[in-house]
Design a binder for these strands. Structure first.
Length: 832
DNA sequence: GCGATCAGAT
DNA sequence: CACATCTGATCGC
């Protein structure tokens, strides 16, 4: 990726800028390095780790700066910065002989002007702040530090012969790297630095910053004056890293439980801890914030941020909801959180820990039940039970066992103190610090080794003859939810008890909330990884997109739908001259239903006309010539209007549109529903469903993004445009002056409904409607028509826009439709 | 000497 | 694997 190049480039640049090679010609590496001889003495040499093309990785230098007395050391440390090497053949740089060098107490020194990259925050701040705007941040992902670099510290004495062998090794190493050149060095991710960086501002990865604010979530290592408010989702060490007892960098917002722990365990001054009530919006610098249970561990929270969007005058015109999941295990009950219900989430910062199909595990309660039943079976009075836990987490197993067996679980004093902070969500009576009264013990995970278990057995002085340990984790090796290993008197159970969402739960979550943007927070330090994560959700968006757009815009039923829709909503004023004739169009399919001959009220005609008037400008879709015939809507019982649509031979399934036609309740949103009956299967499209709305917004956004990046799109429908308005199908071709980009693209092809039957569709259309098509393909679709579609949907979903329809002021005859269509096609894309 | 940070282990 | 630590070493004030 570019980032990679940037890093390298900066590195090199920095090297050249800073390094002072004295009189050494920079372009001419020192001879002793440049040739392949191995120098056995360090003194008085410039070591330069150079590259032939001047684009070299920076080099350690000036080894000859002597400082006799210093201890020598050569060490390497993790490099969080360089996000390169997404390619498969990245080699973990184990081959570097750093360990042996350390062991041999070897030491080298380089100039202070050398730079370092070990935390991504040093000399390349520009680069990092750019990254900060990216969804994925290649660097600083504390959960995914893989790459190492080495740093070289202190000076080496030129007179210190004791270190010659070490110097040898080091120089050999340098020569190795030199020989293989920049690419190899890059591959290995090695860089040289002189010393541990002094305190510098660390740039947080973008997923820790709430977009458009100076709020940091779980990003305490990145404290700086750039951030005014700090949020802690839950009390796990990888999330509170950076909080120390001397914290004074701003308010820490968290839940009551978490806050108590921050105070008690980390010793943070109480005045910096702002505990927030559950499920209650508070105002922080104009942003409304709420903490919602995230089902991860006691006190863990999803954090909802609601930003106000203002116009130039500073008036609030809209709001944007951002949800940060922290660590969470999705549960459908979250759908009903009052603060989330019906909310369009623009950005979802997602705990994607188990975002891979291999991670399927049963619901927690299942596992808990199974553990409890094992305990039931094994609890013979002579068996000691150990339950692996973290500082907090996994309590539900303990609680269930305690409840079932009627005995508390032993915890250490320290753990009891922690649990005491959680008394609001735990029953403390289920725990004890007296181990003599219970065979159940909460232990650290490390106690679940064979030897530890044996030694506990020993310590019991014969009270227990066997020991059973449970290790709850989502990373079970097996497809089974519980595996066990028996060894002597010990039995070790690995149970798929997870406090993160399973793959399916993640999908369910996305399917429900349909955020406009998903921002992964785990293992997302490259664009490739992010794309991979997101790819697991694209079909969720695609599915509904196709149901909606394909059904609406490639076929004519939308007209009928609107006829009924309007009829139910309003009594339009119309000019009789503009009435549509209820002419029937050709139908080539066998008419499967006699109901299609039903009567049509003039109302419907007029509303059709209104519809046409109002929307024809926007709704110029490329209706395939060979697809549709229409039937007029029919009045049926139950206040429903049914439109039976028949399709030509390449469409086997029928679509039935139902609209609640309760005129007495025109305000009722129930009207905004569409039922697709497709081969016996029903799909309901609810125009008032926030998911639906969100989806449309999301589509729009993708299109706009694409439009911005990709104004010239060479994708062109192969078909001529045709507009279908009312009862008349019009073929039109764009005038030669218009680029083809104004043509309708066929994202909306109905062939998605019968992909095996689309031989008459162009390849383009077929591919666009392929259920497996991904978001990127969508993005490459033609912006104008897609935008129109979205625009249309927004109108659909906005009752006001429908109700406020004004009668057309100019006469538009059926024939003018053709004109209009053409005109529209000739126009530049509508704004939206 | 202690807090902060880091590497390595589990 | 990688979660959520824990420990020991080093650095810096």
């Amino acid at each position: 990726m570019n980032d990679e190049e940037d890093d390298i480039f900066l590195y090199v640049t920095k090297d050249k800028e800073i390094t002072n090679y004295d009189n050494c010609d920079e372009d001419l590496p020192p001879k002793d390095i440049d040739d392949n001889t191995i120098t056995t003495t360090a003194p008085n040499k410039h070591l330069k780790w150079s590259d032939d093309d001047n684009d070299d990785i920076s080099a350690p230098k000036d080894i000859d700066e002597v400082q006799t007395n210093k201890k020598k050391q050569f060490s390497y440390q993790k490099d969080e910065v360089i996000g390169q090497d997404e390619d498969d053949n990245y080699n973990e740089p184990k081959d570097i002989d750093s360990q042996s060098l350390i062991d041999e107490d070897c030491d080298f020194e380089f100039d202070d002007s050398d730079f370092f990259f070990d935390d991504g925050t040093t000399n390349n701040n520009n680069n990092n702040s750019d990254n900060n705007n990216n969804n994925n941040n290649k660097s600083n992902n504390y959960k995914n530090n893989k790459r190492k670099n080495f740093q070289i510290k202190n000076s080496i004495s030129s007179n210190n012969n004791n270190n010659n062998s070490n110097i040898d090794k080091f120089e050999k190493r340098l020569l190795d790297l030199k020989k293989t050149g920049k690419e190899e060095a890059k591959k290995r991710g090695y860089q040289v630095r002189t010393k541990t960086p002094t305190k510098q501002k660390k740039i947080p990865p973008s997923f820790k910053v709430i977009d458009g604010t100076n709020f940091l979530v779980d990003g305490f290592q990145y404290k700086s004056e750039d951030y005014t408010h700090y949020f802690l989702t839950h009390f796990h060490s990888d999330h509170y890293v950076g909080i120390t007892k001397t914290w004074s960098f701003g308010n820490i917002y968290c839940t009551e439980e978490t806050g108590k722990l921050v105070s008690k365990k980390l010793g943070v001054d109480q005045r910096y801890i702002i505990t927030c009530e559950w499920n209650k919006l508070i105002d922080i610098q104009g942003v409304k914030v709420a903490f919602l249970d995230s089902n991860h561990c006691p006190g863990s929270a999803l954090i909802l941020f609601i930003k106000s969007i203002r116009n130039e005058k500073g008036e609030i015109i809209d709001e944007e909801s951002i949800l940060h999941t922290g660590d969470f295990r999705y549960n459908p009950s979250m759908n009903n959180y009052p603060l989330l219900k019906g909310r369009v989430i623009s950005k979802l910062y997602l705990d994607n820990t188990y975002c891979d199909p291999q991670y399927v595990f049963p619901p927690q309660f299942e596992i808990i039940k199974q553990v409890a039943s094992i305990v039931r079976k094994e609890n013979d009075g002579e068996t000691l039970f150990l339950f692996g836990t973290y500082v907090i987490g996994k309590e539900r197993i303990l609680l269930e066992v305690a409840k079932q067996e009627g005995k508390p679980v032993h915890v250490t004093n320290e753990k009891y103190a922690i649990l005491s902070c959680l008394d609001t969500c735990l029953d403390l009576n289920k725990f004890t610090t007296d181990e003599s009264i219970t065979p159940f013990r909460a232990v650290t995970m490390s106690m679940l080794s064979y030897h530890s278990m044996l030694s506990l057995l020993d310590q019991s002085n014969g009270k227990y003859k066997r020991v059973v340990g449970f290790r709850p984790t989502g990373w079970t090796q097996s497809k089974k939810s519980i595996t066990y290993l028996n060894r002597g008197p010990t039995t070790f159970y690995s149970v798929a008890y997870s406090e993160h969402s399973s793959y399916n739960e993640l999908r369910d979550c996305i399917d429900h909330f349909r955020p406009n943007q998903i921002i992964p927070t785990v293992d997302c330090d490259s664009q490739i990884k992010v794309n991979n994560i997101l790819s697991h959700f694209t079909d969720l968006y695609e599915k509904k997109k196709q149901l909606t757009i394909a059904s609406f815009f490639s076929t004519q039923p939308v007209t009928n739908f609107f006829q009924s829709f309007f009829k139910s909503k309003s009594e339009p004023i119309i000019d009789d001259n503009k009435k549509l004739k209820t002419t029937t169009t050709t139908t080539t399919t066998t008419s499967t239903s006699a109901t299609t001959t039903a009567t049509t009220s003039s109302n419907i005609d007029t509303t059709t006309n209104i519809f046409k008037q109002k929307f024809c400008d926007d709704l110029i879709w490329d209706c395939p010539d060979d697809i549709i015939s229409d039937k007029l809507p029919i009045q049926s019982n139950d206040n429903l209007i049914q439109c039976k649509i028949e399709k030509k031979e390449n469409f086997n399934d029928d679509l039935i549109f139902l609209s609640d036609n309760n005129q007495n309740n025109s305000q009722n949103n129930q009207n905004n529903k569409l039922v697709l009956v497709n081969n016996e299967k029903e799909d309901i499209l609810d125009f008032d469903d926030p998911v639906f709305i969100s989806q449309q917004k999301w589509i729009e956004k993708q299109i706009n993004n694409k439009k911005n990046n990709n104004s010239n799109n060479n994708m062109t429908p192969t078909k001529t445009n045709s507009g279908y308005l009312g009862k008349t199908k019009i073929n039109s071709t764009p005038p030669p002056t218009q680029p083809q980009s104004n043509k309708k693209q066929k994202t909306t092809s109905p062939s998605s409904y019968n992909s095996n039957n689309s031989s008459q569709q162009s390849d383009l259309k077929r591919s666009k409607s392929d259920p497996n098509v991904n978001i990127n393909q969508l993005q490459t679709s033609q912006p104008p028509s897609q935008s129109l579609i979205t625009s249309f949907f927004q109108k659909c979903t906005s009752p006001t826009s429908l109700f406020s329809l004004t009668p057309p002021s100019t006469t538009t005859t059926t024939t003018t439709k053709t004109t209009k269509t053409k005109t529209k096609i000739n126009q530049s894309p509508p704004k939206k």
